[in-house]
C-alpha cells in the first residue's frame, strides 16, 4: 500500500491544474466525439464525467503502481514523501494502451447510438464536459473536491444547463447527491439507461454486475434489468446483487493495486459462478474485473448490439 497522502496530494494538484486526476490535458483524453457529428443543442446535455476516457490512464497508472507496491522501490516512495516520477502525466500518456483508448471511445459512441435510437433529445458540448472530482471526495479530500465541483457546476450553470445525462455511477452520484449539497447546483440528472427505450427479441442470459453506486447508493439496479428484459435478455441470479452487491475492488486501485486485485478476484468468482457472459456498467468495475481476469462487456455494447442487428423493432420516442 502506498502513502495515501502522497497519492491524494498528487491527484488533488492534478485536478486543480488540469481538471482531471492524472494531469493530462483535456484534449488528450477527450477526443471520442470528434467526427461523430453530435448536436450541440438539445434538451439534455450528455455529461460523460470523463470516467470512461480516463480508463486508459487508470490502467497505466495501476499497472505502474502495482509493479512497485510492497517492493523496496515502493518503500522509498512510501517513506520518501515525494511524488513518484512514474506517475507523471508524460509517462502516463506514453503508457496508455491504444486499445484502451479505442474501447473507451467505443462505449461513449455506443451510448450516443442508444440515445439516438431511443429518440432522446440530447446535445454534447465538449467544453462543458468534465471530471466530477469524485475520487477526491472518496479519498477524503472534501476541500479540494468542493473547490473543483464548484468550478464544474459554475461552468454548467453559466451555460444554463438544467438537465444532464450521465454514463457512469460515480459521476451520477456526484451530480445527483454531492453537487446539490456542496455547490448548490441542482440539475436533473439521469443515466443514459434510464432514458433508453429499446425493445427486441434477443433470447439470452447474461451476468450483470451491479456497481456499488448504482446498486446501493442510487438504487437503480432494476432499471437496466427492465431495459434488458425488453430486449429479451435475462439477467442470471448473482450472489450479492442490487442493494447488496459486492464491490469490484476498483476504488482501492490508487493506493493499493494489490488490494484492488484481491477484492476483484473474489467478486469475479461470484460472477463467474453463473457461467454466463459478464456485463458491467461502470468503467471502474469494468477495468478492475478485467485486471482480475474477466472477459467483460459494457452494458452499452450489449444494448447497441440489438439496435444494430435490427432486433430493436419498437422504439418509443421520449
Amino acid at each position: 500500500m502506498f502513502d495515501p497522502k502522497i497519492i491524494i496530494d498528487l491527484l488533488a494538484e492534478n485536478v486543480r491544474r488540469t481538471g482531471n486526476p492524472f494531469g493530462l490535458s483535456t484534449g488528450s483524453i477527450n477526443g471520442w466525439w470528434k467526427g461523430a457529428d453530435l448536436p450541440r443543442q438539445g434538451a439534455n446535455l450528455l455529461f460523460t464525467g470523463m470516467m470512461y476516457q480516463m480508463v486508459p490512464a487508470i490502467n497505466a497508472a495501476t499497472g505502474l503502481l502495482g509493479k512497485y507496491e510492497d517492493t523496496p522501490a515502493g518503500d522509498r516512495i512510501r517513506f520518501g514523501r515525494r511524488v513518484p516520477r512514474f506517475l507523471s502525466a508524460a509517462v502516463l500518456k506514453m503508457a496508455t494502451a491504444k486499445e484502451d483508448r479505442s474501447a473507451a471511445a467505443g462505449v461513449l459512441m455506443d451510448i450516443t447510438r442508444i440515445l439516438q435510437a431511443s429518440g432522446v433529445d440530447f446535445a454534447y458540448r465538449p467544453e462543458l464536459d468534465g471530471y466530477s472530482g469524485i475520487l477526491l471526495y472518496d479519498l477524503g479530500d472534501r476541500e479540494n473536491f468542493i473547490a473543483h465541483a464548484r468550478r464544474v457546476a459554475g461552468r454548467l450553470q453559466e451555460a444554463g444547463v438544467e438537465r444532464l445525462i450521465t454514463v457512469d455511477p460515480h459521476t451520477t452520484w456526484a451530480l445527483r447527491e454531492l453537487y446539490p449539497r456542496y455547490t448548490g447546483y441542482r440539475p436533473e440528472v439521469r443515466t443514459y439507461f434510464e432514458l433508453a427505450r429499446l425493445q427486441g427479441n434477443g433470447d439470452r442470459e447474461v451476468t450483470l454486475h451491479d456497481p456499488c453506486f448504482y446498486g446501493r447508493y442510487l438504487e437503480l439496479s432494476q432499471v437496466p434489468r427492465t431495459l434488458l428484459a425488453g430486449l429479451g435478455v435475462r439477467c442470471a441470479d448473482v450472489n450479492s446483487a442490487g442493494p447488496f452487491t459486492s464491490c469490484c475492488g476498483g476504488p482501492a486501485e490508487s493506493v493499493s493495486p494489490a488490494l484492488a486485485l484481491t477484492v476483484g478476484r473474489r467478486r469475479l468468482a461470484e460472477l463467474q459462478a453463473t457461467g454466463r457472459p459478464l456485463v458491467t456498467m461502470c468503467p471502474i468495475c469494468h477495468a478492475n474485473l478485467r485486471r482480475a481476469g474477466a472477459d467483460v462487456m459494457d452494458l452499452s455494447a450489449l444494448l447497441v448490439r440489438f439496435t444494430r442487428s435490427g432486433e430493436n423493432s419498437q422504439k418509443r420516442a421520449e
Binding site: G140, C212, R216, S246, C247, A252
Partner: peptide
C-alpha cells in the same frame, strides 16, 4: 482507513444505522 473501498455495504447492513462507511469517510478527512 484508505483500504476502505467506500462501497457502502457496511452502512447498508448496519442494524443500528450507525453508517460505518460514512464514519470511515469522516475519519479519512
Amino acid at each position: 482507513l484508505w483500504k476502505c473501498l467506500h462501497c457502502g455495504l457496511c452502512s447498508r447492513t448496519c442494524p443500528r444505522q450507525a453508517d460505518p462507511g460514512e464514519i470511515i469517510l469522516g475519519l479519512k478527512r
